[in-house]
Design a protein around this nucleic acid. Structure first.
Length: 466
DNA sequence: AGCCTTTGACCAGCG
DNA sequence: TCGCTGGTCAAAGGC
């Protein structure tokens, strides 16, 4: 995994700068406090959150958690969120973080101990356990839809993911980013050549871009694939290497003529998505799977399909990242878009991860070593204004994980129910063989999810060693 | 044929 | 005003 952790001094400087700007919100390795208090520090942090994720997330301090992870866990760190439509009502009344270092559940092995109906006997943990569990696991995440690389995940968590992951089975072991990329490239070719019909079942259609990007071989660096297919069609209109970023940033626009949604995707050299930022909300339904471009799709037909899917899903709406940049001034998410979005009309899910920004909630807990990255997982219903909704923001949702150097974290998050907006997560540190299992809660006020529709993968990378 | 990516250039915002 | 930076444009070429 050397390529994942290049340990670029310049990157470290950048990170340190980030940390400084964020008042050292990165969780310290030594910080044992894993309290879920959501004390969003400084405006800088909030701004970043608002700009990138539109939400705040509780911090998870997992630095001390270590568990034996089989070699298969050496797959690229990723986060998967799915909405299997499980009913974990019993699981969550509040954000619950489960740690199960002993269970050794592995997406690759199919064991997912804390899954409802699978092995979720232990639903509550002491604070200490939580602390220990999360303490020390840091990571910077990038969220993107389930990709082939996630196959192992869902094999393991299949019971909680009604989504069809058939294609993901191609890479059951999925042990390295390189494999992911390779596989992604291969499938990418298939996808483009055989048209969407090959892979775009409804389920796949629901898979968000990360997956698509992975399957298509990701960015140009890897395979020149299209951006992830989250059910929408995107056209790349630019790429640039931004300062402070190790990897080039690609700019995509929704191909729908009436849709102004854009997204920025950053990928690692291996093609792993390191960051996805959405801007705006789709004001249209997802194009039919067998249509290559939404521009060619009849609006009525789209609406019909959308309606069918909606009926099937019959759940909340993904919180679009529409607020990511809008929160910082963009007006793209106008009432029209927002209204439709809120009504749950085929808006794409949004996961934003800022690999460098920190989401620590407590400045006092800041890690100033500059050796930790953080990641967040979250959703924003679009109403969360970074400024005016601070209290609301503090009821953060998602995951924040501090990270140690040269560590990579694997996280799997599964949405248990669209109503309660809880996620099941597994975080593994491939180096330390750590594992963190947790339940994540997403505030309903921020996000709602469609059962069986949202499946995401977030890849983690070392923010310091790039 | 049409859509896509690539990529250098251009533009606007900011310090 | 100038330089830097991020974001976008648009021509060219590929699939």
């Amino acid at each position: 995994m050397g390529e994942w952790v290049p340990c670029n001094p310049s990157s470290k400087r950048v990170l340190e700068r980030e940390l400084s700007l964020n008042h050292g919100q990165v969780t310290s390795n030594n910080n044992k406090d894993s309290s879920q208090t959501n004390n969003i520090s400084g405006g800088g942090l909030r701004e970043r959150i608002a700009a990138r994720a539109g939400f705040n997330t509780p911090r998870l301090n997992t630095e001390n958690i270590r568990s034996n992870t089989d070699s298969s866990s050496l797959r690229s760190p990723c986060l998967t969120i799915s909405s299997p439509g499980l009913s974990p009502a019993t699981l969550l009344d509040s954000p619950v973080f489960l740690s199960n270092p002993l269970a050794q559940p592995s997406p690759t092995t199919g064991k997912f101990p804390f899954l409802p109906g699978v092995n979720c006997n232990r639903l509550s943990y002491s604070d200490k356990e939580k602390d220990e569990f999360f303490d020390g696991v840091g990571a910077s995440f990038t969220f993107h839809p389930v990709s082939t690389s996630s196959s192992s995940f869902f094999q393991g968590a299949g019971e909680m993911t009604p989504v069809d992951y058939g294609n993901y089975n191609n890479s059951p072991s999925h042990q390295s980013p390189e494999e992911d990329v390779k596989l992604g490239s291969e499938q990418s070719g298939l996808k483009r050549k055989s048209s969407d019909a090959t892979t775009n079942t409804n389920d796949h259609q629901e898979v968000e871009e990360g997956e698509e990007e992975e399957q298509r071989g990701g960015d140009s660096m890897v395979g020149g694939g299209a951006p992830a297919e989250d059910g929408y069609n995107w056209r790349k209109y630019g790429q640039k290497l931004v300062k402070g970023s190790e990897y080039p940033r690609s700019y995509y626009k929704c191909t729908n003529p009436n849709c102004h949604v854009k997204k920025k995707v950053e990928r690692s050299r291996e093609g792993h998505i390191t960051e996805i930022i959405y801007k705006g909300a789709h004001n249209h339904s997802k194009p039919p799977p067998n249509r290559r471009s939404g521009m060619q799709v009849d609006g009525t037909e789209q609406a019909e399909q959308q309606q069918r899917q909606q009926q099937r899903d019959n759940a909340g709406t993904w919180v679009s990242s529409n607020n990511t940049q809008q929160q910082v001034g963009s007006n793209e998410n106008n009432g029209e878009e927002g209204g439709q979005y809120e009504s749950g009309d085929g808006n794409g899910g949004v996961i934003m991860v800022d690999a460098l920004s920190t989401f620590s909630n407590d400045e006092d807990e800041d890690d100033r070593e500059g050796t930790h990255g953080s990641a967040s997982l979250g959703y924003d219903g679009g109403g969360g204004e970074g400024e005016g909704d601070e209290s609301e923001s503090k009821r953060s949702k998602g995951v924040v994980i501090s990270k140690q150097d040269r560590e990579e974290v694997l996280m799997t998050v599964s949405l248990l129910t669209s109503d309660s907006n809880y996620f099941m997560a597994v975080i593994r540190n491939q180096y330390g063989s750590r594992r963190v299992q947790t339940l994540l809660r997403v505030e309903s006020s921020y996000a709602r999810f469609r059962p069986g529709e949202e499946t995401w993968i977030a890849r983690a990378r070392s923010p310091l060693c790039e």
